[in-house]
């Protein structure tokens, strides 16, 4: 555990909680892509199946349980409790175009051709692109609520901090996981355009809106 890994995890946790609180307090999931949230629930479920097979630490186990629990709670709020506020017409990204290639890639490129390892690999690849339906929705509507941009910033920052963590671990622990690193770079790059808008607009007190 190093400072980048810990702040990355906390940034990830902050993102998840910001989103849950936003939906709960406003009693609305307007502007939130339910499809991205379903993808994140699949990501956590397929990655954390090792909860059943191996124990790493109390920290590790409790964070995994919290992430999974919050992911399903978010999906429940969007598709059940506040379903009436869900903007399905704008959430029109075709997720099969992500899930199918990512599934194929996980079967072809993995560390070990075993059930749990392929699911772990699938979750790493899927996470790297799971935000696309959300970004697509924002580009379609041309705007995002400020609280939604805070969520996206924390979520993007988390993987960027993990990149620093992997550099640290490479130098100080000789740890190197090519699959996680490549997927992590892809994931972080997808947020770059958003980071630019966040810093130049939201942090200066303006609403995030895209030119028509």
């Amino acid at each position: 555990m190093n400072v980048f890994r810990l702040t990355g995890d906390l940034s990830h946790l902050a993102a998840i909680i910001i989103l849950l609180l936003k939906i709960w307090k406003s009693r609305s999931c307007a502007g939130i892509s339910g499809k991205s949230q379903i993808l994140f629930a699949i990501v956590f479920t397929t990655r954390y199946l090792d909860l059943l097979t191996s124990f790493i630490s109390i920290y590790n186990t409790s964070m995994k349980v919290i992430y999974i629990g919050c992911a399903y709670a978010t999906v429940y709020l969007i598709y059940m409790k506040f379903r009436a506020t869900y903007d399905g017409n704008h959430d029109s990204f075709r997720v099969e175009f992500l899930v199918v290639p990512v599934g194929g890639l996980a079967v072809l490129v993995n560390h070990d051709f075993s059930f749990l390892e392929i699911l772990w690999t699938f979750s790493i690849y899927l996470e790297s692109v799971a935000i696309l339906p959300q970004l697509f929705m924002i580009s379609k509507t041309g705007e995002a609520e400020t609280i939604t941009t805070h969520y996206l910033f924390c979520l993007g920052l988390y993987r960027a901090l993990y990149l620093l963590n992997w550099i640290w671990r490479f130098y100080f622990e000789s740890f190197f996981d090519m699959i996680a690193i490549v997927a992590g770079v892809v994931q972080t790059v997808l947020y770059c355009d958003f980071f630019y808008l966040y810093i130049t607009k939201v942090l200066k007190g303006k609403k995030l809106s895209l030119p028509a």
Partner: peptide, 10 residues
């Protein structure tokens, strides 16, 4: 040495 199949990251 780390066993890469024991994924200790989240």
């Amino acid at each position: 040495e780390y066993n890469i199949y024991e994924h200790d990251e989240l």
